[in-house]
Design a protein around this nucleic acid. Structure first.
Length: 504
RNA sequence: GCCCCGUUAGUGUAGUGGCCUAACACGUCUCCCUUUCAAGGAGAAGAUCACCGGUUCGAAUCCGGUACGGGGUACCA
């Protein structure tokens, strides 16, 4: 019933390079991209760098890296160009100057020489008088001569848009429906700053028009300023785009998602071992749903089912636990072959960054890894866990905890005896294969008159160093007979209070 | 302060006037499977649908108010 037969949408994502790309911004980009792809349209990336004070060099790169990682490819953008290049606002100043000129000539805007200091004074006076702070439109009544005198005197001049006396203004939003706004609450606002750069309000309108954007997908913080945008559009005689204000993403405590809620940028999720497809899937389900119970979807499935009329109006809380679960599902749905290189990359990271211990030589043996991966495949919630889970296969020395060796329900004497018997078994077992080993060990348990657990646990701890590990016999085979023998001998020595055997 | 938007279990969502004694998923708990941990299977607990009032034969669904939350109120985006 969803109306997915819209004409091709040209959408854009227009971040400003002022810092790390936030996960909320990523979700906005995702919805924008989804709309373009769903309708067979285009997705454009544009950099909005008109605030020279807040510019953080290099962030364009990290923004593009985030988008690429998530698979949000763009058809036109600063790096690849396109029919409306350039795609960086600081390189398009002429366009904004033209629009400003048009607005000035038609009387919809005026030049103003009020200084920041004067504005500050005004604000203080208003607050002292208990009135709402804001520009008092004083520039409307200044003469051309005054402005010219100020310009000659080197005072900063801005261009302000004149709010028309129209009462209320209504605009349509695809998510919010009709939004009504009282224009008398608005003051004449700056569209061209004294440094010659436009403000967002003017710049994005000129660009969206030039780039033929049909749908403006952006965060909810823009709702209150949309009336200004509609006003500018009308003054210029330009057509209005479709507005789609997507809801905010909140942190666990229902406040705006930020650094202290853990990983806030998309790239951090990548670095923590999350799969791009899982993050994509999870983000798509924040503020949108396909309308039935389906949760696990591929990119293509989401593209196919996406529709703006199912976007919610209310903000949602980002739940890391559910993301972790979903990531586990996506990992399980990915083949060992496809997981091989990503996991290898995790293992090969420096130890300080969560990789294998420095003593393990890199690169890791791909064939060996391919043999081991199935053992932990369905146990992984993130790729990064692989380093910890697989570590004992790669390191030379493990250090089991003496206390942990017997397991919960046994004692060290029994454990020592179990290990002695196991040692003999491991030395002679033939073939050295999981099924055969298991049969032999079970027979051994019978002979010793114990259950499987009390026998298996000491062996597990002895060979892996942990009481939690993949299935024992696959693990033993994976480690290899000689190293298993060595590890069991060490564990026995440990139980006998002799410390690890260090002969040979 | 003023303006805008929102409010279904802890979280994400379903629900668009009767099928709702409110569904699904994550999380939590119990049990099964089992050599540990996962995965898988079977269950359980958890929501007076923010509150109050109205419309209606009937409201989670429509209307109004209140509360709470969030956003905005810049020569930032």
């Amino acid at each position: 019933m969803a109306t997915n037969t819209t004409s091709p949408a040209r959408t854009r994502f227009a971040p400003s390079p002022t810092g790390q790309m936030h996960i909320g911004g990523v979700r906005t980009a995702l919805f924008s991209w989804l709309l373009a792809r769903q309708t067979g349209g285009q997705f454009i990336l544009r950099i909005e760098d008109t605030d020279r004070n807040r510019y953080v060099p290099g962030t364009e790169q990290s923004i593009m890296e985030s988008l690429r990682w998530l698979g949000l490819d763009w058809d036109e953008g600063p790096d690849i160009g396109g029919p409306h290049a350039p795609y960086t606002q600081s390189e398009r100043l002429e366009l904004y100057q033209d629009a400003t000129k048009q607005l000035l000539e038609s009387g919809h805007a005026y030049e103003d020489d009020t200084t920041p200091e004067e504005l500050e004074e005004l604000r203080i006076a208003q607050q002292a008088a208990g009135k709402p702070p804001g520009y008092d439109n004083r520039g409307r009544y200044k003469t051309k001569e005054e402005i010219e005198a100020s310009r000659a005197a080197g005072k900063p001049i801005v261009v302000r848009f004149k709010i028309p006396d129209l009462g209320t203004l209504k605009f349509q939003d695809a998510v919010l429906g009709e939004v009504e706004f009282d224009l008398s609450l608005l003051q004449d606002f700056v569209i061209m700053k004294s440094d010659g750069y436009p403000t967002y309000h003017l710049a994005h309108i000129a660009d969206d028009r030039a780039m033929e954007i049909t749908h403006v997908v952006r965060g909810p913080e823009w709702v209150p300023s949309t009336p200004r945008h509609v006003l500018i559009l009308d003054a210029l005689g330009w057509e209005k785009p479709e507005y789609i204000h997507v809801p905010l993403i909140l942190g666990k405590d229902r406040s705006k998602l930020s650094k202290r809620h853990g990983a806030a940028s998309a790239l951090e999720y990548r670095d923590q071992g999350f799969l791009s497809g899982a993050v994509f899937n999870f983000l798509a389900l924040l503020g949108w749903s396909p309308g039935d119970d389906t949760e696990i979807m591929t990119r293509d499935e989401i593209v196919e089912r996406f529709s703006i009329d199912r976007i919610l109006q209310s903000p949602s809380v980002f739940d890391n636990e559910k993301l972790a679960w979903m990531n586990g599902v996506h990992i399980r749905q990915t083949s060992v072959e496809d997981l091989l290189e990503p996991v290898a990359a995790v293992l090969e990271k420096p130890e300080t960054e969560g990789g294998l211990p420095a003593s393990v030589s890199r690169p890791v043996d791909r064939d060996y890894l391919k043999q081991l991966l199935p053992l932990v495949h369905e146990r992984l919630k993130t790729l990064n866990e692989a380093a910890e889970t697989l570590s004992f296969f790669f390191v030379d020395e493990i250090s089991p905890d003496v206390e942990a060796l017997p397991g919960r329900k046994s004692d060290s004497a029994t454990a020592a005896r179990s290990l002695e018997e196991s040692l003999a078994l491991v030395k002679t077992a033939e073939p050295f294969e999981p099924e055969h080993l298991e049969a032999e060990f079970r027979a051994l348990a019978d002979r010793l008159g114990v259950k499987a657990g009390p026998l298996f646990t000491p062996v597990r701890v002895a060979v892996t160093g942990s009481s939690m590990a993949p299935p024992l016999f696959d693990t033993i085979v994976g480690i290899g007979r000689e190293r298993v023998i060595e590890r069991i001998e060490n564990a026995i020595a440990l139980l006998n209070g002799a410390g690890p055997a260090s002969d040979s």
